[in-house]
Design a protein around this nucleic acid. Structure first.
Lengths: 250, 250
DNA sequence: CGGAGAACATCTCAAGCTGAGAAGAACCTA
DNA sequence: TAGGTTCTTCTCAGCTTGAGATGTTCTCCG
């Protein structure tokens, strides 16, 4: 039997069937607070509970395309603004009992978005909103989405260390102070302004100067700041390390 | 309709069916050379080609359990030796056309194993062998396994930087020189012996002394070396960074 | 049996980087 | 205009890094 004959005779039903979904941990920063996109489920199971945006992967759709589509559906985003959102694969979650309906393997994705307009409820969702991550403790998310969010946040914090993805939370042109605010928001730590400034400018390809400055100083005073745009580095070398966290090591 | 009624009426066939497999990038070091476990496929498609060990996830099986099972089947490993193998999720691969038979999403895993006995051919496989990664360029792997291996190797190299996983390539007790050999093998770079020694001992929880020394010196001379075992750190802080690779940054 | 060569473990030193503080100037609000 | 805030740059001590050297222990081979 050659390959063509084999494929013609092949019966897909012979293998155990599993549903594959994508879920998206979409992060943005609004008013200096890290927000996560959540959907209030309109259907069983977990009707009324908050959950990550996501859904079934379509037959001819790539995993990352499915993640972008779900994100677009829930946020109403399209075109250039959607292109500016960074989406990467996070991990897959496939415990046999994670969905009471049937065996579902979810390929979770992580998205970094600049400050976005209010979310638009999609087809499957009763409601879609940006929720501050500090308020997540109170909400019991559906399925294993609590774990997925925890993993996504840790990944996001870690990615800021060695990639320039912090710029993805900002407009195309930004100041060093705005960039520092992203790090402080995601890491939940105050950083030394002077040292941060020195470090950012010393990492090759992290940011490049536009030559311009802001029109006005900060709202509470201070001089105008210079504007930068993202450079061409894909990795920060050397990295910007988080303040040491003893407890995380052991 | 409450949740119970909903589940009773639920029809799993209503959703697009996808097969979910696991594939394993299993690495070990034999005679100072990094080896990858490969299977020669006995069936269509890609019959006769080399491929990663892997297979369908069973209905009640966790993803990581499936990866360990596939690894056990192909290596003949069991019990304590199998427990000593580190297995972690790598990424999922789900391009619509990656398998000509049907839509298959593969959850790839990465395994670090101490020097293992020769592989035993499993049920699906015509042949299973450890192949030096330097010889991979010549072989056209089945499916998208070439890409998976590339991603796995990069992940392995990177993981050595900030986790103590290098110890997983070694016996429970090892010398600093053996540990250094792991880094040199995986990174493909010579390291400064003195500096490596200083660094390893200075990272809290990386290794702990057993008090003992080797029975003999090295095969080509030199004093006996002290023996260490893995410490309790899960992250190396500060990390052991690879020699800078300019080209990797942009 | 003895010398050559190899490797372990430690030390030295210059260069670079980091964290902490400070200072000058620009700018906002009141 | 005064006071407070922020941007940006500078200083400096302490630490880490990379490179080389040293003394010692051991194996191999003649």
């Amino acid at each position: 039997m050659n390959e063509q004959e084999f494929l013609a005779a092949y019966d897909p039903g012979a293998y155990p069937s599993v549903a594959v979904t994508v879920d998206v941990v979409a992060l943005t920063i609004r008013d200096g607070v890290l927000h996560l996109l959540l959907i209030r489920r309109g259907e069983q199971p977990y009707a009324g509970r908050w959950a990550l945006p996501g859904g079934f992967v379509r037959p001819d759709e790539d995993l990352s395309a499915a993640a972008r589509r779900e994100l677009a559906e829930e946020t109403g985003l399209d075109g250039e603004p959607l292109r500016r959102v960074h989406v990467e694969q996070l991990a897959s979650y496939g415990a046999p009992d994670r969905d009471p309906r049937m065996r579902v393997v979810s390929v979770a994705h992580l998205a970094f978005a600049p400050d976005l307009p209010d979310a638009t409820a999609g087809t499957d969702a009763a409601e879609a909103t940006w929720v501050p991550v500090t308020e997540l403790d109170n909400r019991q998310l559906a399925f294993d989405h609590g774990q997925i969010v925890t993993d996504g946040l840790e990944r996001a914090r870690s990615k800021l260390e060695y990639t320039p993805l912090a710029t993805r939370f900002l407009a195309p042109e930004f100041t060093i102070a705005e960039l520092r605010a992203v790090y402080e928001t995601v890491w939940g730590d105050q950083l030394h302004a002077g040292n941060f400034h020195r470090k950012v400018l010393s990492v090759p390809g992290f940011v490049e100067s536009t030559g311009a400055s802001t029109e006005r100083g900060g709202s509470r005073g201070g001089p105008r700041s210079r504007l930068y745009r993202a450079g061409d580095a894909r990795l920060l070398h050397p990295a910007l390390l988080r303040p040491a966290r003893e407890e995380a090591v052991r």
